[in-house]
Every structure is written in C-alpha cells, then in structure tokens.
C-alpha cells in the first residue's frame, strides 16, 4: 500500500493512557516536591555528569512523569548525586531524593529489574 513515503512512527508519540506511571506515582508520594518542577533546566545546566556525557535530569524527570520509563532506567544511573542541582533549583525540588527514589523504584519493580 502506498503510504506516500511516511508513516506516523509509533515510538514518537507518548501514549499517555497505556504508559505506566507507577514510578512517577511512587515518587510523588514519597517526595511531593517532584511536582514543583517548572522545567527551567537549571539542574541540567549545573549538572556534574552532563559535563561529561548526555544526561539531563530535567528530561529524565519529565519522562518519568509521562511514564516513558524505558529511556530513564539506564540513564538515571549516570547521576553522581553531587547535589549541585538541588542547590540551584529555584523551586526547591529535592532532586537528589528523586534520583534515589527513582533508582529504588526501578529496582523494586520486577518488570523493570535491572
């Protein structure tokens, strides 16, 4: 069938209904400041890890919130927990705890066993 040379790639869109947001819910419950992010990117800008490699805490956080967990699981481990992000955040988001909780959540869930 002629698709006129393009299709809508399934991987491109966030399928909100079928995505699993349990990791996000877990973090929301344990660390309510997770909700306060305004996506300013201050954390990613100052990040020690992103000085060396592709790593954006802001992006990982929003992906968790949308349930796009696959991209997060491996990447999150690059964090060194140095805490600069927490110091910079204008909204007082407890970014370090979010990383620790997310790592724990991924570890807990069998589905996402490392």
């Amino acid at each position: 069938m002629n698709k006129f040379g393009f299709t809508i790639s399934k991987g491109r869109q966030i399928d909100y209904e079928s995505n699993d947001r349990r990791i996000a819910d877990y973090i929301f419950e344990k660390e309510p400041s997770f909700r306060l992010c305004i996506e300013c990117g201050g954390c990613s800008a100052t990040c020690t890890t992103s000085n060396f490699t592709v790593f954006s805490l802001r992006e990982l956080n929003i992906l968790i919130k949308r349930g796009e967990n696959d991209q997060v699981r491996q990447n999150l481990k690059k964090c060194m927990l140095c805490g600069k992000c927490t110091l910079v955040c204008p909204r007082g988001v407890n970014t370090r705890n979010i990383v620790v909780l997310a790592k724990k959540a991924f570890q807990k869930s069998d589905e996402y066993a490392i």
């Binding site: 020690t48 000085n51 060396f52 060194m80 927990l81 140095c82 805490g83 370090r96």
Partner: peptide
C-alpha cells in the same frame, strides 16, 4: 568541573 568526589553517593 571534575567528577564528584564520591561522598554524596
């Protein structure tokens, strides 16, 4: 900017 010292971890 270097790597973190490790104590936070």
């Amino acid at each position: 900017g270097g790597a973190c010292c490790g104590r936070p971890l």
